[in-house]
Amino acid sequence: MFIKILLIFLVLALVLRFVLPLLMRHLLVGFLQKQARRHGQQLGGAPFGGAAPPPSPGRDAPGQVHIDYVPPTPRRTKDKPTEFKGGEYVDFEEVK
């Protein structure tokens, strides 16, 4: 009876010491890769060095700027000047 309990304890200890960390590492890596793929799809990127998705047709080449929206310029009122006429001159002295 005592030998049977000791063997069960020994097998359980070996499983917890060697097999469980490998299993947990495998599950954690799989979970992290799944999350990275999910976030990569949301952001349009390719995780883990995979090939980037091809550019969609009708878009500019990489490095080109495309502006979708330009906000309207505010109207000038008669109270505000239309251009800057200058400011006060301040003499510069170098301090050593």
Results as ranks from 00 to 15, higher is better:
38 R>P: 00
52 A>G: 09
3 I>N: 08
13 A>N: 08
75 R>Q: 15
80 K>W: 01
33 Q>E: 12
62 P>N: 06
91 D>R: 08
65 V>T: 12
15 V>N: 09
67 I>N: 02
71 P>C: 02
69 Y>T: 14
62 P>H: 06
18 F>H: 15
39 H>G: 00
11 V>L: 15
80 K>I: 03
56 S>W: 10
22 L>N: 15
58 G>A: 09
89 Y>F: 12
87 G>W: 02
22 L>F: 14
40 G>W: 05
3 I>A: 12
18 F>M: 10
46 A>F: 03
72 P>K: 12
93 E>D: 06
26 H>L: 14
54 P>Q: 05
92 F>T: 01
53 P>Q: 12
90 V>Q: 07
53 P>L: 14
24 M>H: 09
4 K>C: 03
6 L>F: 11
74 P>W: 08
49 G>I: 03
45 G>S: 14
42 Q>S: 09
77 T>R: 08
25 R>L: 14
7 L>I: 13
63 G>A: 07
30 G>Q: 11
26 H>Q: 15
92 F>E: 04
34 K>D: 02
79 D>M: 05
95 V>D: 04
62 P>S: 05
37 R>Y: 06
22 L>I: 12
38 R>L: 10
84 F>A: 02
27 L>Q: 15
45 G>M: 13
19 V>R: 01
33 Q>M: 07
6 L>V: 08
5 I>T: 07
17 R>N: 07
37 R>L: 07
25 R>C: 00
23 L>Q: 14
49 G>C: 05
40 G>C: 02
50 G>R: 14
95 V>N: 05
74 P>C: 02
83 E>N: 06
42 Q>Y: 10
3 I>C: 01
30 G>P: 01
81 P>F: 01
96 K>M: 09
64 Q>R: 15
7 L>Y: 10
11 V>P: 00
15 V>E: 03
23 L>E: 12
70 V>K: 09
42 Q>H: 07
49 G>N: 07
16 L>F: 13
55 P>A: 06
86 G>Y: 11
40 G>I: 01
